[in-house]
Every structure is written in structure tokens, then in C-alpha cells.
Design a protein around this nucleic acid. Sequence first.
DNA 1: AGAGACTTTATAGTAGCTTCAAGGTCAAGC
DNA 2: GCTTGACCTTGAAGCTACTATAAAGTCTCT
Lengths: 154, 154
Amino acid sequence: MTNRYRIGDLATQLAVPTQTIRYYEHEGLLSKPARTEGNYRVYGIAERERLTFILHCRALDMTLDEIRHLLRLRDAPGQGCAEVNAVLDAHIGHVAERIRLLNDLQLQLKDLRARCESPSTSKDCGILQGLASFPTAQDGGASRAGVHGRRAQE
Amino acid sequence: MTNRYRIGDLATQLAVPTQTIRYYEHEGLLSKPARTEGNYRVYGIAERERLTFILHCRALDMTLDEIRHLLRLRDAPGQGCAEVNAVLDAHIGHVAERIRLLNDLQLQLKDLRARCESPSTSKDCGILQGLASFPTAQDGGASRAGVHGRRAQE
DNA sequence: AGAGACTTTATAGTAGCTTCAAGGTCAAGC
DNA sequence: GCTTGACCTTGAAGCTACTATAAAGTCTCT
Ligand SMILES: [Zn+2]
Ligand SMILES: [Zn+2]
Ligand SMILES: [Zn+2]
Ligand SMILES: [Zn+2]
């Protein structure tokens, strides 16, 4: 009864756009579902759970590759779960590294900001001068921190 | 003498790919430079400084739009620099917000990780179960934190 | 039979590059 | 003079994880 869903049902229940569900199918995270006579996708409870799993992983900001990896482990229930731990630990490392980069960045930005306490003309602005002459981080930490979301307006 | 550069000179000196320089031109951050007879781009010291400015901004993870904004202010040297401060403060806000999201994320991930202290089979793994049944963050904080750089291997 | 809500596929756009392909320019070496 | 190789040119495609659009087919209700 409640275990046959169309794509829009899943989308509503799990608060994800239908296009995203099709995209996950295209990317092989969800397998190709059964179809109705009219060629509509039909999902069962197992597929709903699988999608829930994926969405939780995405909420934790894992890449689709990381999620693919976890799904593979999930599909082999007899295997030990050491590898699950490894994937998670690696991802925790990604987050930690990103936090470290952002803290560095925040320090640099605040230092730069402090160069203009008394706003004058932009020709003499310590910020613009700082940006022109800042030491170029040569080989040190060239990684990009990634600060702006999909939409970073405002 | 030292104030005429070809694109490769600039690229070597500032440690940036030539394609990126052309891309910045395409995006209007650098204006179209003079050309040699053979149609090669020729840059002067002012263009080198402008590119340096852009690269420093990128190293601070500003968007090209933010940089465009700062360049416009830099090109109007008589204006007050209050707007420069505003752009920088907004960007500092972007970084702060991202740090906040990532700290949240780190807490969630560590909580999840703690569900598997004694590795068993993946069928019974507390991590996989947690990912399947985790509370879905409905309306709360749906923003994506953005954890993985261009290449996040290893 | 027709309206409206749903579904299908395919395609393009997002940010900031990076990589590739196919060719043009230029200085040095034989 | 001719070739080699380093450099330059443009244009297009690929990357992540979607998001949005278009044009068409399906289903349900009245
Ligand atoms: Zn990760
Ligand atoms: Zn100032
Ligand atoms: Zn910003
Ligand atoms: Zn486990």
C-alpha cells in the first residue's frame, strides 16, 4: 500500500527535488527503478530508505563518491565495518582541514581589515594597498578554502 | 625594459596558469591588453599589479564578483573607502558563517562516528544505521557547508 | 473532451577554473 | 632554408552537485 511511490511522492516526503532523484539515478547512486505502463518510475520502501541514506550523507556534506563508497559497503552486509569507519574518519578529516583553512583565512582577513580604521579616500586605503602588496603565498598553503555557498548574495 | 611581459612571463612570475589569466580577461577583471604583430598579448607593470591584486583577493577566497567590486573602487581613487570596508566586512561574514556551519557539521560527524566503537559486520554497524535513520533536518539549517576542495582525494 | 497536475527526456547553466585539440609564431640549430 | 621545440592563439569540453528550462507524454477529474 504505502510502499509504492512515484517520484513526486518521494520528493515531497523527503523534501528533495525530483530532478535530484533522477540525477542520483543517473550517477548510479540509485539503481534504475521499475516503470509503470506509462513509463513512470515506481519506487518501493527499500529505494526510499536508500534515498534517505543518501540525503543524510549529503546533509553531512559528503561527496557523491564518498556516498557511493558507503553504499557499496552497505550492500555487502557481511563485511566488517572497519572500512565504514575509515570513510567517515577521512571525511571528518576533510571537515577539520577545511575549518583549519578557514580559521587561517579569518585571521588574514581581520589583519587586512585592521589596516583601515580611519576611512579616507580609496587611493590611500590601507586595505587596497594591502591587497596590492600582500606577500604572495608561494608554496606554503595554496589550498582554496571554499567560502561561498551556491548563492552567496546579500 | 622589465615592464613588458608576455602572458607566460606573468604566469611564471606570479605562479598562475596562463589560462587563468586569459579567463580573468574574459571575465572582465583584466582589460584587453595590447598585442604584438604576431597577436601575442603584451602586459605592462600596471597590469601586473592588477593581476597581483586579483590573486591576493582569490587567496583570501573572495568571489570574482567581490573582486570586481573592489577593482571598481580601486579604479576610483578619489572615492571614500567606506565601501571597501563594507565589501571586506561582508566577506569576513561569509567566512564566519562557513566556519559556524562546519563546526556544526563536525559535531554531527563525531556523534555519528561514536556509534561504532567496536567494529562488527556492516549489517550491524551503528554508523550505517545512523545514516539510514538520522533525523532529517527539515527546515532548520539546510545550508551546505562545502567541505571538499577541487581535489579531495587521499 | 478538455483542464490541470503530474511525468518523461534532453539540454544548458552555475563558479572558477583545468585540460584538450588544432593550429599560428618565433628563435635557435643544422 | 628548414626543422625542431617552446611559446602563443582560439574554442570547446570537463569538473561538482545540482538547478532550471523546454517540449512532449500520462493520468485524473469533471
Ligand atoms: Zn569528505
Ligand atoms: Zn580605507
Ligand atoms: Zn565573500
Ligand atoms: Zn561499525
